[in-house]
Design a binder for these strands. Structure first.
Length: 570
RNA sequence: GGGCCUAUAGCUCAACGGUUAGAGCAGAGCGCUCAUAACGCUUUGGUUCCAGGUUCGAAUCCUGGUGGGCCUACCA
């Protein structure tokens, strides 16, 4: 039995994520996890909230709460929503956990021992009114280049020139508006990524089967300019993992915390410890330590393209640089962005559909199906309400839902609510079995390769076979002359429902459960042998006609939603 | 400025140097009547963004444009 370790990029804590965030990380990761479980493999699927950093502190202040309390609440909110989308994490952890604190400090300690950390003295903008150091982007002023009056400290949004906060004319804090700013000298730790450049380069070069998106971003960072740069891994903040060298204090680093991008990926490992400590599993090391059984684990990460540098370079640098036998990622699946109706999803402007709103409108399966069958794999893709309505109505309601409805209702009216006896499968059934078997092979191939859109296409084609079969077999006609043959045809159709339930579960878990429940079956074994699987429900097996699996989205609803999500979030 | 991705039917996408560029949706026609006005079959529709080039052969490779998107290291 293969073992799959699967992680989704961990969503930031400061609010509810929109569908664009969901489509590139948590959802495809869940799809893959459910598929691997369905194939009978052992899976550990982990996700968490990313809780440290300036934005979390500011969001908490805005909400009028201590940051720890704010994070705890938002974690619960995100966990609830994840459950609503049927994201089947084995554990949904928190980067602020004690486990992650200890592990992050441990890694910093061993990296220091390996001489991969150096101290750098630099100047940072300090705001007296805010009582904190300000990241460059929280400082605005007049652009010295073009005169734009709200240029940010890192870059001017008007002329796109790269800036330094000290370049700005009349700089002020975007948090308080205060102009009482001062450049202060402060010391920070840098991870010497440049020392690991060749090793990382060779490692990326060996990953010839990774998505182009993943490797091209990694190579850009490795080879651009002077090559991979050392990176600051500490910040002057209150909220975060205190800087320590393992269990020891770090002289000169008092009051500082690790940078979120240092501790966030480490949470993948710490999360498995949380999973054990929560009593959900045991022995996390057999997933992470190659000296303790993780050698045969296949580790797959999912993320949007903005996360790629940290997963291809920074985190591997931490892992490899430690000199300890930690499991390194085997495959990085990255996604482009999902746009919303001619523009971008925007958290700040409330443009587009957010995860909580989506679930208020329609159940998870509708969203899961559309998002995965339109996943932005080769380029950015676009959500439009017209496309959503058409795809969901056609694929789910008409092709799959109606198939289940027509065969179960026909059986009930002619034979009653049990699998009818009589007749035998013949050439027509053999042909359908052959066709489904071929399609299933393709489906498995795409799912193994995490080709999400192509897998969805194949699955849909398998659903279509059911309707084609019914049309050709026409049990409603056969029944008049030859009820025995009609019985065999209906038996075949009913068995298809169970098979569809199993194959469709990664995409539409709720409908899958509803189909199995209707068929009164709890046999979820992967149908490797389609012929056998289509005889699993034997003569006399009782079933129930389910409620319609999917309702249709009306034109009125579509127009209503289009208006509602165009502007600001209420 | 630099780099990467992308442009194929009205729409969303396949095709990764090799028959006549395919599929779903939308449109048209026919059939079916079990079913959620559902299903099936047939079918219309393409100067593969533009201009050159390489090749026996180019949507695919090269060069130069044009449009769209992303990244560029202190947001995470």
């Amino acid at each position: 039995m293969a073992r799959h370790l699967i992680t989704s990029a961990i969503p930031y804590i400061n609010g509810i994520k929109h569908l664009g965030n969901l489509v590139g990380s948590q959802l495809p990761a869940d799809l893959f996890a459910r598929y691997q479980r369905g194939r009978g493999n052992e899976v550990l699927f982990l996700c968490a909230t990313d809780e440290h950093g300036t934005p979390a502190e500011l969001a908490a202040t805005k909400a009028g709460k201590p940051v720890a309390e704010y994070c705890a609440e938002m974690h619960e909110v995100q966990a609830k929503i994840a459950e609503g989308f049927r994201l089947s994490f084995d554990h949904f952890g928190r980067s602020s956990s004690e486990q992650n604190k200890a592990l992050t400090q441990h890694f910093a300690g061993v990296l220091a021992e390996q001489d991969l950390i150096r101290e750098v003295s630099e100047t940072q903008m300090y705001s007296h009114a805010d009582g904190r150091y300000l990241p460059d982007r929280y400082i605005e002023g007049i652009c010295p280049n073009c005169g734009f009056d709200s240029a940010r400290g890192d870059q001017c949004d008007n002329c796109t020139k790269q800036l330094d906060p000290v370049d700005l004319i009349n700089p002020h804090s975007t948090i308080s508006g205060s102009t009482d700013l001062e450049m202060r000298e402060t010391k920070h730790l840098y991870l010497r990524q440049s020392q690991m450049k060749d090793q990382l380069d060779a490692w990326i070069d060996s990953k010839t089967d990774w998505p182009v998106l993943t490797t091209s971003i990694a190579k850009k960072w490795l080879h651009d300019g002077d090559g991979l740069q050392d990176r600051g891994i500490t910040r002057d903040l209150d909220w975060g993992v205190p800087v320590k060298k393992g269990g020891e204090d770090w002289p000169g680093m008092e009051g500082k915390v690790f940078y979120v991008w240092f501790d966030a990926p480490i949470e993948y490992i710490a999360c498995s410890q949380e999973w054990v400590d929560a009593g959900k599993g045991e022995d996390w090391e057999r997933w992470w330590r190659t000296d303790k059984g993780a050698d045969d684990v296949t580790y797959t990460q999912f993320m949007g393209k903005d996360n790629v540098p940290f997963h291809t370079l920074s985190f591997p640098c931490t892992i490899l640089g430690s000199g300890e036998p930690w499991k390194l990622v085997d495959y990085i699946k990255s996604f482009n962005y999902l746009n919303y109706d001619g523009g971008q999803f925007s958290t700040s402007r409330g443009r587009g559909v957010f995860m909580d709103q989506a679930l208020e409108i329609l159940p998870a399966d509708y969203w899961r199906w559309w998002l995965m069958s339109h996943a932005p794999e080769s380029s950015d893709s676009e959500f439009t309400w017209e496309n959503f309505q058409q795809s969901v109505n056609k694929d789910l309601a008409d092709v799959l839902g109606n198939f289940v409805s027509r065969i179960t209702k026909f059986c009930r009216s002619k034979f009653g609510e049990e699998v009818p006896a009589g007749g035998a499968y013949g050439d027509r059934e053999e042909a359908a079995i052959k066709e489904i078997s071929d399609r299933l092979k393709a489906y498995e191939g795409f799912m193994d390769a995490i080709e999400v859109r192509k897998a969805a296409n194949e699955l849909r084609a398998i659903w279509v076979i059911g309707n084609e079969y019914l049309q050709e077999a026409a049990p409603w006609s056969t029944f008049k002359e030859d009820p025995e043959t009609a019985a065999a045809q209906v038996r075949f159709g009913l068995n298809l429902i169970r098979v569809y339930a199993i194959l469709s579960a990664p995409f539409i878990p709720d409908a899958s459960d509803a189909m199995l429940e209707a068929m009164k079956s709890d046999d979820k074994g992967w149908p490797s042998d389609i012929a056998a699987a289509l005889s699993a429900l034997g003569t006399g097996h009782s079933f129930a006609v389910p409620e319609n699996l999917f309702r249709k989205i009306t034109d009125e609803e579509r127009e209503d939603w289009q208006q509602r999500f165009a502007g600001t979030r209420d």
